[in-house]
């Protein structure tokens, strides 16, 4: 393995609010190889979106600030680039699609204008060439009659179609990395499947690496090569997808997996992790999950170490440390 395409090292992003500092992303590290897919899973507020926005340097400042760490992309530390250099990377080498396709398109501009903007900007195409490229991209993402529909306004498209347009826009410049921030959350289930299928297909055809952010483990299972589970701003477990589903090591991951409904098994009540997601302004000094953890014990008042529990499988829980020393 050569150097990974993206290597996030000890990333720390905080928001400074009236209630105090919120460490939305606290010492997060991961690697992503070219052409691979990483799933980042977690509850609302676990820091998964902030991680992706930090990579793109789109954190609203103030109140947010990237406090430390490195985001090495193709050997360059994105956090050290000037705004101008960063703009040249956004959209061209790293593209992003957002959660809500309803509001990610400018309601005042025709689809054509929004799609040509990116290729005029980064590929230096003139209007006509950019328009041809835009139609090509719309056809690629499966919009019928693209040459005519390109002159429509966003509100003339359905949700799924708009997400296709967003994907077309994101992939216009053949980016090396696509960050998909809950790309299907706002869509209904059948459309969800279509969009995921589309992302999968394009990923294979264009060789794009993908960071897929979601709270849906089912989505991750079908798409990702590796999964990172986030809780309270930290990665608590990361593993190859198969390994994570077969042998979840962290109690939080185990809880998440247990709370997924199994269509083959009839249960009276679906399992849910007890308690609520933590108040990010007042995290416990040790393991943030301890107050909700069925295995919580005395060592949990200390921050847990991240240890290897299998091949490329790491977990941050005292339980894993103990079982390791016992074994």
């Amino acid at each position: 393995m050569g150097t990974p395409l993206l290597s996030v090292r000890n990333l720390q992003t905080s928001f400074f609010t009236r209630e105090g500092e919120v460490r939305s992303v606290d010492d997060v590290s991961f690697d992503l190889e070219a052409g691979q897919t990483l799933g980042i899973v977690g509850e609302s507020g676990s820091g998964k979106s902030v991680t992706s926005l930090s990579i793109m340097r789109l954190i609203p400042t103030p109140p947010g600030r990237i406090k430390g760490g490195q985001v090495l992309f193709g050997g360059q530390d994105l956090l050290k680039l000037s705004d101008r250099q960063m703009r040249a990377i956004r959209g061209k080498r790293i593209a992003m699609i957002f959660q809500d396709p309803m509001s990610s398109l400018n309601p005042f501009l025709r689809i054509a204008r929004q799609l040509t903007e990116i290729s005029e900007l980064h590929l230096g195409l003139d209007r006509r060439a950019a328009r041809r490229r835009a139609i090509e991209m719309l056809e690629l993402v499966g919009i019928p009659d693209a040459a005519r529909r390109i002159d429509d306004y966003p509100h003339q498209f359905s949700g799924g179609m708009r997400q296709r347009v967003m994907i077309a826009m994101a992939l216009s410049c053949d980016p090396q990395l696509l960050i998909a921030d809950e790309p299907t959350t706002a869509l209904d289930v059948t459309i969800q499947a279509q969009i995921l299928e589309l992302i999968k297909d394009l990923r294979e055809r264009l060789g794009t690496a993908v960071i897929l952010i979601t709270h849906d483990l089912g989505v991750v299972a079908g798409m990702a090569d590796r999964v990172a589970v986030m809780y309270a701003g930290k990665i608590v477990e990361s593993a190859p997808t198969d390994s994570l589903f077969a042998r979840p090591a962290h109690p939080y991951t185990q809880g998440l997996l247990r709370s997924m409904p199994d269509p083959l098994q009839e249960v009276a009540e679906l399992y849910q992790i007890p308690g609520l997601p933590p108040d990010m302004t007042r995290l416990p000094p040790g393991c943030a999950f301890a107050p909700r953890c069925p295995h919580a014990a005395e060592p949990c008042s200390q921050p847990p170490e991240t240890v290897a529990v299998g091949a490329a499988h790491r977990s941050a829980c005292w339980l894993n440390v103990r079982s390791e020393t016992r074994a």
Binding site: M86, R87, S104
Partner: peptide
Amino acid sequence: NREFVEAARAIGVS
């Protein structure tokens, strides 16, 4: 703060 503005920033618009 609408998403389409963020989306525009995400494709590198000045």
